[in-house]
Amino acid sequence: MPQLRIAQDPAADDLLGRDPLALLLGMLLDQQFPMERAFAGPRLLADRMGVDTLSAAGLADADPGQVVTWFRGPPAVHRYPGSMAARTQALCRLLVDRHDGRAEGLWAGVPDGATLLRRVRELPGFGEQKARILVALLGKQYGVTPPGWREAAGDYGQEGSRRSVADVTGPESLAEVRAGKQEAKRAARAAVPS
C-alpha cells in the first residue's frame, strides 16, 4: 500500500493510499481549491457517509440531494459543493459502467501509458492536464508504471520535478510545488502584453 502524504493529514492520506477511488476523487476535487484540502475531501466524504472505504456504486446510486448535503458540510468538501457532488457521481457512474465499480480498473492490465492516459481523459472533470498529472501521480507514488507512462504524463512524469501533486511527498515538497506554481503564474502574467 502506498504511503501518501498529499493531504498532510494522516487519516486522509491513509485513505488515499488504500482506496484508489479516494485518490481519484481527490484528484477530481483538486480544482480551484487548495491541494491538501482537495485530497482531504475523500476522507471527509467517507466520514459523512459513515464508511471506511468509498464505493463507486454507493456514490453513483445515492440520492443526488444527499450527496450535495455530504459535500456542503460544514466544512465543505469543496468550494463548489453542488457541481463537485454531481461530477463525483458522474465519475462513479462511469466506473460502475466500464470498470465494475473499481477505480483500479482504470489501470489494471493497461498495455501502455497512452492507453492509461486515454482512459483517464474519459473521466468526467479530467482535461488533458489533469489526466497527465494523474498518470504521473499513479506512476510516481502508486506503483502504476505501464511502459511509456512517463511519456504519457509529459513534463509531470519527469524524475525529480516539482510541478504537481504527483511530486508531493511531504510538507517540504508541497511548499516546493506551490512555489513552482506561483512562479509559473507570475511568468504567465508577465508574458501577457499590456
Score class of each variant (00 low, 15 high):
residue 7 A to R: 07
residue 30 D to Y: 05
residue 81 P to F: 10
residue 62 A to F: 02
residue 92 C to K: 07
residue 26 G to P: 01
residue 181 K to T: 09
residue 80 Y to V: 00
residue 60 A to R: 05
residue 30 D to P: 02
residue 152 A to S: 08
residue 188 A to R: 15
residue 162 R to N: 05
residue 9 D to T: 00
residue 188 A to F: 14
residue 50 G to E: 05
residue 53 T to G: 09
residue 152 A to I: 03
residue 152 A to E: 12
residue 164 S to Y: 01
residue 123 L to M: 12
residue 177 V to C: 01
residue 10 P to I: 06
residue 49 M to S: 10
residue 86 A to H: 07
residue 75 P to T: 12
residue 139 G to F: 06
residue 140 K to A: 08
residue 78 H to E: 07
residue 13 D to F: 11
residue 67 V to Q: 00
residue 80 Y to D: 00
residue 67 V to N: 01
residue 31 Q to F: 11
residue 23 L to C: 12
residue 142 Y to E: 01
residue 140 K to Q: 13
residue 64 P to T: 11
residue 88 T to I: 04
residue 132 R to V: 06
residue 25 L to G: 11
residue 106 L to G: 13
residue 173 S to F: 06
residue 162 R to F: 00
residue 33 F to L: 13
residue 73 G to Y: 08
residue 66 Q to T: 13
residue 141 Q to M: 04
residue 170 G to Y: 03
residue 31 Q to G: 00
residue 10 P to Q: 11
residue 27 M to V: 11
residue 28 L to C: 00
residue 148 G to E: 11
residue 65 G to Y: 02
residue 160 G to K: 06
residue 2 P to V: 09
residue 54 L to S: 10
residue 64 P to N: 05
residue 135 V to E: 07
residue 153 A to F: 08
residue 175 A to D: 09
residue 97 D to F: 06
residue 170 G to P: 10
residue 158 Q to T: 12
residue 51 V to R: 10
residue 73 G to I: 08
residue 181 K to N: 11
residue 112 D to H: 13
residue 129 Q to L: 13
residue 11 A to L: 09
residue 163 R to D: 12
residue 127 G to S: 12
residue 158 Q to L: 14
residue 108 A to C: 04
residue 63 D to Q: 04
residue 20 P to A: 02
residue 59 L to N: 03
residue 95 L to T: 13
residue 84 M to C: 03
residue 58 G to Q: 09
residue 46 A to T: 03
residue 4 L to H: 01
